[in-house]
Amino acid sequence: MDPRTSTARDLDPAPMAPIRAEHRPASAEDADTSPVDVHVTLDEVSVHYGPFTAVRDVSFDVHRNSITALIGPSGCGKSTLLRTLNRMNDLVPGATTSGSVTYNGEDIYAEEVDPVEVRRRIGMVFQKPNPFPKSIYDNVAFGPRLNGTKRGLDELVEHSLQRAALWDEVKDKLSQSGLSLSGGQQQRLCIARAIAVNPDVILMDEPCSALDPIATLRIEELMKDMASEYTIVIVTHNMQQAARVSDRTAFFTVDMDNERQDRTGVLVEIDQTDTIFTNATDPRTEGYITGRFG
């Protein structure tokens, strides 16, 4: 058995959710990762804000050590959905999540699961670079210090910054404020900060939307590089970005109910990125990707 699946097997006494047809490797390049290693599973996930349904009945699998992109028009709930994956939606007053999200075979919404523990395993990088108004070192050390780590912080900070491809640029000014860096550097600092907590899934909510093209390129290269160690789920407005970086792409759209004046996000389809971009099953996906709407 593939050694990478061992953690999932140990934690999961129940059988894995059945792998749907769309997950079966279609092309030759996927054959070596078979059988598909599912890291996170969403099953009939819906998110409500009070009476309003933001996302309805989303089910799909996130594969281990791959990049999954969530694309779709504004208001289709892709960011909302992303935030259900590490229970950040718990912090929004009035937000409720139904359905189940399974991480390594465990339901992260189970009663005995502490949302804080979920967020330590499933890290997050936000749309706007948001370093703390602290030094670069303290930014990276923030997460480990929350857990009481005191020894080995220097090595951890260095390793995290190296992993985020920022070390060479900041190694001589670790005591300077994180806010003194450029936007792209700040975002890589935020990635380093997330890595330092040692998660295995990293969620990225439009991580490049506030960055210039060169900084964007660096982050994209970094993401591709990180995918060997981490499972990455990225929300992006930029379809080219999804095409460039992701292994799989999920396309969401807005379901309009004119009678109730309701807009609800729904998953249209998810597949290998190549397939979504060249040979989508649903006409709505093709329409969005070719720019006919959205």
Binding site: N86, M88, L91, V116, E117, R119, R120, G123, M124, F126, K128, N130, P131, F132, P133, F142, G143, L146, N147, C190, R193, A194, V197
Partner: peptide, 10 residues
Amino acid sequence: DLKQAAYGLG
């Protein structure tokens, strides 16, 4: 944003 970042780090 800052609070969100802190919560995101657990």
